[in-house]
Computed example of a mutant assay.
Amino acid sequence: MKRTKEDYPTFNLFSIVGIWESVNLNPTVIIYRNDKDYLLSIIYVSETTKQASPATYVIQKDGSQYFIANVSKRLYIDYNPAKDVLSISSLGDYLRN
C-alpha cells in the first residue's frame, strides 16, 4: 500500500515538548521524552487535599494522528504551530507555559 501525505503527522513530537496549561481550567499537561518514547503526564490536583497526582501515558501514533490511551478511550493530540496551541480531545486547548 502506497503511503500518502495524510499518513504522516503534521508536526513532530519534539515540537510539543514542555509544560502546557489549559485554557479551560483542565489539569496541566507535561510532555517529555525518555530514552525512546514521548510521554504525556496529566497533573491532577485534589480539591480537598490539594495533593498533586500525575498520570503518565506513552504517546502513540495511528496513521497521521498522535494519541494516548486513557483507560478505555483514546485522547487524540493535535498541535497548531502557527498559534502554538496544543489540543487534546475531550480536554480542550492548551497554551505553552
Rank of each mutant, 00 (worst) to 15 (best):
V58K: 04
N12S: 15
I16F: 04
V23N: 07
I77M: 08
N12E: 15
S89Q: 08
S72E: 15
Y44D: 13
R96W: 06
R74F: 13
N80G: 05
Y8R: 13
A55M: 11
S22V: 03
S53L: 04
V45I: 13
T10Y: 02
D7E: 12
V45A: 02
K73M: 13
M1Y: 04
I43D: 01
T28V: 14
K2E: 13
P27K: 00
T28G: 03
D7I: 08
T4W: 11
T49M: 02
W20H: 07
Q60M: 09
L13Q: 05
D78I: 00
G63N: 12
L39F: 06
N80K: 06
L86T: 07
A82T: 13
Y8W: 13
G18Y: 11
S46I: 03
I31R: 01
A82S: 11
I42H: 02
T49F: 02
S64Y: 03
V45M: 06
N97P: 05
G92K: 12
I68Y: 05
E21L: 11
I42D: 02
Y32S: 15
V45Q: 09
G18D: 07
Y79D: 09
P54I: 14
L75V: 04
S64K: 03
R74W: 08
K2A: 11
I16V: 13
V85N: 10
D62G: 07
L40C: 02
R74I: 06
F67C: 05
L13W: 04
Q65Y: 09
L40Q: 00
P27L: 00
G92W: 10
Y57F: 15
R74D: 13
S89T: 15
T4M: 07
N24T: 12
G63M: 10
N24D: 14
R96P: 03
E47G: 14
A52P: 04
D62L: 13
N26Y: 05
N12P: 13
M1V: 06
Y38K: 00
K61N: 15
N12C: 15
T48R: 12
E21P: 00
N12K: 15
R33T: 08
V29D: 00
I88W: 01
Y38A: 00
G92C: 10
R33C: 10
T49Y: 01
Y32N: 08
I59F: 00
D7L: 07
Q60V: 02
A52N: 11
S22T: 02
R96H: 09
S64M: 02
Y66Q: 02
D78W: 00
N97Y: 14
N70R: 14
V23G: 03
N24M: 12
N97I: 13
A55D: 11
I42L: 05
I77K: 03
L13T: 05
T28H: 05
L25F: 07
I88C: 05
W20G: 02
D93Q: 12
I59Y: 00
Y76C: 05
P81A: 09
A52D: 09
N97D: 14
S72H: 13
S53H: 07
R74A: 13
D35F: 15
D37E: 08
S64T: 02
E6V: 06
D93G: 02
L40M: 01
V23L: 11
I19C: 09
R33V: 04
N70T: 09
K5A: 15
S72Q: 14
Y44F: 15
R33Q: 15
V58M: 02
N24W: 06
Q65W: 07
S87Y: 09
F67I: 05
A82D: 12
I31H: 02
Q65H: 11
I43R: 01
V23M: 08
